[in-house]
Design a protein around this nucleic acid. Structure first.
Length: 125
DNA sequence: AGTATGACTCATT
DNA sequence: AAATGAGCCATAC
């Protein structure tokens, strides 16, 4: 069952409740347009817990358990590197998914990262 | 219940 | 520039 956020006006969830944080993460990730990417830190920052980037990555991991409804390939670390590629079915799947969306990847790093970077703090402001 | 770990990031050394 | 420590907080053991 989903938990409702108490404060719907603010993008910042009430993280004292267990599930809101992860749900918000998935919510944001689902809104990433095709051909764009964002970072764990940017999402964490958008949710108001900017030092909890690790939890964002962890949410992606949980996403697996829940049944992959989130384009996790569009989330990379702050260097534009595919730090999570190991968690996709094959070592190359994440890269392939990105290439298919028009994002160039070279040596596990996104080419023109700054250009395709999609910042929820700006886009969802 | 305490410790270790992680798809991260930042400050310090 | 590279390594280290610290903060984050839910899971796993």
């Amino acid at each position: 069952m989903k938990k409702k956020r108490s404060s719907s006006e603010l993008p910042i969830a009430d993280n004292t409740k267990n599930y809101s944080f992860f749900e918000n993460v998935w919510d944001v990730v689902r809104q990433i347009p095709e051909g764009r990417v964002t970072t764990y830190g940017a999402i964490a920052n958008y949710l108001g817990t900017k030092s909890s980037a690790r939890m964002v990555g962890y949410a992606m991991n949980l996403n697996h358990a829940i049944s992959a409804k989130v384009p996790a390939q569009r989330v990379v670390n702050r260097n534009g590197m595919l730090s999570g590629k190991a968690h996709f079915g094959t070592p190359t799947m994440m890269e392939e998914l990105l290439q298919k969306e028009g994002i160039s990847v070279e040596k596990d790093k996104i080419v023109n990262f700054e250009k395709v970077f999609w910042d929820p703090n700006i886009e969802l402001a």
